[in-house]
Structures are given as structure tokens and as C-alpha cells.
Amino acid sequence: MSELVNTSTPQNWYLLLSTLLFSIGVMGVLIRRNAIIILMCIELMLNSVNLLLVSFSAYAGNTDGQVFVFFIMVVAAAEVAVGLALLVSIYRNLGSTDIDVLSKLKG
């Protein structure tokens, strides 16, 4: 079991992978108009950060990073619950989840 983290995989690759996933999440937030997909892209970004924290924790031999990941998961679950409730409320009032409809504050 201890050979699994044999550190033969350089940590730079994990850095690269989570950077790529984060950028894809940002791209999704910028180019999609459906609010549910934007919420999913935010989840993607949170997950890339989680992956980075776990890789640092595993390569440094320190458990604290994994506890942080646990708390990030807790916050993500709460965020999704509240976000989806907001979306249901918005859909009921406006009949759409298009974020460009929500421009009342523009004045």
C-alpha cells in the first residue's frame, strides 16, 4: 500500500492538472448562460483546488490538508443546496434559468 504514493509521479503534474481543471471551470462560468451549468463549473473549480490540497498533503506527509479538503466539501454541499433552492425560486418567478434575464439591477 505504501508503494502507491511512490512519489515517482512528480507533483508538478498534479499542479498542472488542477490548474487545467480550474481554467476549464472558469471558462465554463464565462461562456455558459444556464445557471445550473455555472453552478456545476463552480463545483469543478472547487474540486480542482481539493485535488491540489490533497496532492500537497500527500507529498508533504501532513494530514492537515486533507482536513481542509473535508471542510471544503462540507461548504460545497451547503452551497449547492442553497444555490439550487435559489434557482428553483428564480425559475418559478421568471420561468427561466438564463442568467442574462436577471438584469434588473442594471437599472
Partner: peptide, 11 residues
């Protein structure tokens, strides 16, 4: 799967 590769079984 990445977490399993990093030996973070709980997570």
C-alpha cells in the same frame, strides 16, 4: 481515482 492514487482513502 486521483485521491486513491494519492493514498487518501478517506477522502
Amino acid at each position: 481515482g486521483h485521491y486513491v492514487m494519492l493514498n487518501a482513502q478517506f477522502l
